[in-house]
């Protein structure tokens, strides 16, 4: 209505909003090209004097970017693979298998989705530090550094995702039982039914779930920060870049930090732009973000 009466006004609002959204990203990219002493100087200038790639080289060297990338990639891949696997297995059991306590379990999955993540922060950390027989711990979980010695610490609390189970279960319920029964009559075991019949049909929802999980895991900050304080070798991209920003003189390192940030958000941005249809559907379904 407003659009029809005042087309220029609604266009103006949408464009202004889009500009406000994009400008911080552009500022980040521009700053990443600025030379030493060029950023933070008055008066403010948006464009750099020259598009110099030296900050990107410095970011790769000073930030130890290869190591950060390696940790982020390993953690994100393991989490995504695990969530996809556990969600589809559990989702299948909850949707298509009959066993005592099925509804109770499904209700448990739903209700625990309401627990806020900060409640688990402290206990999760303590459980990992006191993990029995890991990192020099004895059977009672004392004496060593626990699981914080290995990259498992980064991924453990994210291996199963309640929302993922819920999503796959809802999707699998709609697959007709006749198809599964036909396969069973032909002698297929439940595992074969899951792998050969159910999984191929749930591919779209798997892509959505995988993408959501990947983006969340890649961007995860608080837990990775905790793990990195216990073991600096396990720093991920967000943690490592934030550390450089915190401990070195911001005026001189800011362009390097920005260069590191640009490199660190690029993989996710590319993935999002390519597969945004799936991502946005996931956000609509989860309704959480």
């Amino acid at each position: 209505m407003i659009r029809r009466r005042f087309p220029w006004l609604s266009c103006l609002v949408v464009v202004t909003g889009a500009v406000l959204t994009v400008v911080p990203f552009l500022d980040m990219v521009m700053t990443s090209f600025k030379g030493p002493g060029e950023s933070g100087r008055l008066p403010y200038r948006f464009l750099p004097k020259a598009f110099d790639l030296s900050n990107y080289r410095a970011a790769i060297d000073q930030l130890d970017l290869p190591v950060l990338f390696r940790n982020s990639v390993i953690a994100t891949t393991v989490i995504t693979a695990s969530v996809l696997c556990t969600s589809s297995l559990a989702g299948y059991a909850l949707a298509k298998l009959r066993f005592p306590g099925r509804n109770f379990l499904f209700r448990l999955v739903l209700s625990t989705m309401m627990f806020p993540p900060f409640l688990f922060l402290i206990p999760h950390f303590l459980i990992l530090v006191h993990w029995p027989l890991a990192g020099g711990n004895n059977l009672l979980g004392r004496g060593g550094a626990g699981l914080t010695v290995s990259i498992a610490a980064l991924v453990m609390p994210f291996l199963v995702n309640n929302f993922g189970i819920f999503l796959t279960r809802q999707f699998m319920v709609s697959i007709p039982d006749d198809v599964l029964d036909a396969a069973r009559v032909d002698g297929a075991g439940e595992f074969t039914v899951w792998w050969r019949i159910v999984l191929p049909q749930t591919m779209p929802v798997m892509v959505t779930l995988g993408l959501l999980t990947f983006v969340d895991a890649w961007n995860e900050y608080i837990w990775s920060l905790l793990v990195a304080t216990a073991n600096p070798n396990l720093m991920t991209l967000p943690v490592g870049i934030q550390l450089l920003q915190d401990y070195v003189d911001p005026a001189s390192t800011l362009p390097i930090v920005m260069a590191g940030l640009v490199l660190s958000i690029l993989p996710v941005l590319i993935l999002f732009v390519l597969l945004q249809k799936y991502y946005i559907r996931g956000v609509v379904l989860s309704g959480l973000k």
Binding site: P24, M28, Y221, I241, V273, Y279
Partner: peptide, 27 residues
């Protein structure tokens, strides 16, 4: 796509860019 960019960006990037934008010599 444009309006969604901040959502897929890590909080470290969002926080630092805005922190710098709020500086006396920032945007």
């Amino acid at each position: 796509t444009v309006y969604f960019l901040p959502i897929v960006t890590t909080v470290v990037a969002v926080g630092n860019v805005w922190k710098y934008m709020y500086e006396p010599g920032g945007l």
